[in-house]
Simulated scan of single mutants.
Amino acid sequence: MPSELQVHGRFVCWVCAAQNKAGVFDRSRGRSVPVRVGDVLLADGFLVRHDHARGKLVRTDVRSGQAVTSDLADFERMLRLARVISAAPTMPGARLPDRPGRDPRCQADSSGQVCNGR
């Protein structure tokens, strides 16, 4: 009995934690491709997994019927960048990300409040 199932289009990701096995079943091909067990999210023909041991986000493409894996990003570097970005609006003078309808001159004032740049 699977401990986890994810479905996206023709692909079904299954995990049997008790047996330490996982795979992606391609409903159009009628067969599974074995993949590594871990924290995964299924997309259209590929998985993204957090490799805790190496601190990487790993992409596994299964569209060909075989698991083709490559590093996608350095997870720790992404976390550091996310912390910097989330802190940016509270730093005096920090520019806020451009968004539709936002005055591009917006920035945080000395108290960390957003002012309209006018």
Rank of each mutant, 00 (worst) to 15 (best):
R31E: 08
V114P: 05
G93I: 09
G38E: 04
L96K: 10
R59A: 12
E4V: 02
L96E: 07
R80S: 07
C106E: 15
D61S: 05
V68P: 00
W14T: 01
H52M: 07
P2I: 05
T90S: 14
H50G: 00
Q6F: 01
Q19C: 04
V48N: 02
P34T: 08
N116F: 10
G30F: 06
V35G: 07
R49Y: 02
Q66A: 15
R105M: 10
A53K: 14
P34F: 06
R118M: 06
V33A: 05
L79K: 13
A43G: 07
H50L: 15
A82H: 11
K56F: 11
T90G: 12
R59L: 15
R31V: 03
L79R: 12
S64W: 10
L96T: 15
V37Q: 09
S32N: 03
P104L: 12
D71I: 09
V35Q: 05
V37I: 12
P100C: 12
A88W: 07
A108V: 13
V24A: 05
Q19E: 09
M1Y: 01
L41N: 06
R36L: 11
P100L: 14
P34A: 11
R49G: 09
K21G: 00
R49E: 12
Q6K: 06
D103K: 14
V35E: 05
V15Q: 05
P89G: 12
D26Q: 01
V35P: 09
D26S: 03
S32W: 01
I85M: 13
A108C: 14
V84R: 14
L81D: 13
R80V: 07
Q6C: 00
A88E: 11
R27N: 06
A53V: 14
P97K: 09
D98V: 14
D109H: 13
R63W: 06
K56G: 01
T90F: 15
Q19A: 09
D44C: 03
F46A: 04
V40W: 04
V35S: 06
V7D: 00
S110E: 15
Q6G: 01
N116C: 11
S110L: 15
M91K: 15
A94K: 09
V35C: 06
W14M: 00
P92F: 14
M1W: 01
V84M: 13
R99K: 14
R49C: 11
E4D: 08
R105T: 11
R102W: 14
L47N: 02
P34K: 09
S28P: 00
G117I: 04
G23N: 02
M78N: 06
D98M: 12
D61I: 08
F11Y: 15
K21S: 03
R54L: 14
C115N: 13
Q113H: 14
R77I: 02
V68R: 14
K56A: 13
G30P: 08
A67P: 04
R102D: 12
A67V: 04
V12M: 02
W14V: 02
T60F: 09
D26Y: 01
L79S: 01
T60V: 13
S28T: 11
R59K: 15
R77Y: 04
C115H: 12
